[in-house]
């Protein structure tokens, strides 16, 4: 734990704090499922106890007319609980479906996990370590990647977590609705200091968040930083306007299908662009000769995120 004053420290906490509508929704699902669980189990527990006492050896009770098979009974206790619980499968799948699709207007925060700390970068370039500040009332998308082993960003106040993988981006999103201090954890075991790879999640009103951003201090946005890197690493030499080497035009690339050599196409998402920078020999693009050098081991993860942020801003020239 960091020494910082934590969220409400009750001696005995029995109910987790919820900081989003979605979290309350998940709580209701768990509530209802618990009720049905009790409905299904309590009769069994009572029956077993009752039968064990009622039919104890030596007691004079009616043991006649027993049956040892009955297909109708078998089918009913196979299928009725199954269909009953399927309602929860559907309910859970429906919430999950929402969790999987972040709204297009989400505020995108970049996260990097490494042994044993979190680094978060806000779109304006503000960076923070282990703690995360987010505004209420706006969908927030966290786009994350690991620098080493598998981590997992767990935000219990929103009832969501997502593994942070090396080599590819994963996302989670939420819309906070209750300002306060909550905890964030790494929930995937990642080595020695796994249990101290945690921090505080500050949910703030939009005004407080804006104020925090201005205090956090950053000279440039991620995209602006990326633009600088784009020329520093020499990307603009080939991909830039008026370049002499025939390289694919990156303007308007993001989110579009890229035709592959040998047929098919791949959507140019974050993971694709990152992979093309590091492993240009993978996924050869139709109509281009592969001459790009690999930047593997050259560009660190946070700069890759800045480059991608910049590429996303490159408007289609047509």
């Amino acid at each position: 734990m960091n020494g910082a004053p934590g969220p409400a420290q009750y001696p005995l906490l029995l109910w987790p704090q919820a900081a989003s509508h979605a979290a309350v929704h998940v709580d209701w699902l768990i509530f209802a499922f618990t009720a049905v669980t009790l409905l299904l189990t309590v009769p069994i527990f009572l029956a077993i106890t009752y039968f064990a006492l009622m039919y104890r050896s030596g007691r004079q009770v009616d043991r006649g007319h027993t049956v040892d098979r009955n297909v109708k009974i078998e089918l009913s206790w196979m299928l009725i609980p199954f269909f009953l619980t399927l309602a929860f499968f559907a309910w859970g799948a429906q919430i999950f479906d929402v969790e999987q699709h972040a709204p297009a207007n989400s505020l995108e925060i970049q996260a990097i996990g490494r042994q044993w700390m979190w680094k978060f970068q806000h779109p304006g370039g503000q960076a923070e370590i282990n703690d995360l500040h987010v505004p209420t009332g706006q969908p927030v998308l966290i786009n994350m990647i690991s620098q080493d082993v598998i981590h997992s960003l767990y935000l219990p106040a929103f009832r969501v977590q997502m593994e942070t993988l090396p080599g590819r981006y994963t996302q989670l999103w939420f819309t906070a609705n209750r300002p306060g201090e909550y905890r964030l954890y790494c929930s995937e075991y990642c080595g020695t200091d796994h249990s101290v790879m945690d921090g505080l999640l500050y949910v703030m009103s939009p005004r407080d968040y804006a104020h925090w951003l201005s205090q956090a201090g950053s000279s440039q946005s991620l995209a602006a930083l990326g633009k600088k890197l784009f020329s520093n690493y020499g990307c603009s030499g080939c991909h830039g306007v008026g370049a002499t080497i025939r390289a694919p035009d990156l303007a308007g690339l993001y989110g579009r299908p890229v035709p592959m050599e040998g047929g098919g196409s791949v959507i140019a998402d974050d993971t694709y662009i990152r992979d093309k920078i590091l492993n240009p020999d993978n996924n050869l693009i139709a109509g281009y000769k592969q001459v790009m050098p690999s930047f593997k081991g050259v560009i660190p993860e946070d700069e890759l995120m800045q480059l991608i942020a910049y590429i996303k801003t490159m408007e289609s020239s047509s």
Binding site: H25, V26, L29, I30, F33, F88, F89, W91, G92, A93, Q94, I95, F96, E99, S152, Y154, P156, R159, V160, Q161, S187, E188, Y189
Partner: peptide, 10 residues
């Protein structure tokens, strides 16, 4: 249950 696991996993 998918949405419950998103909270309770690990």
């Amino acid at each position: 249950t998918l949405a419950v696991d998103a909270h309770l996993h690990d």
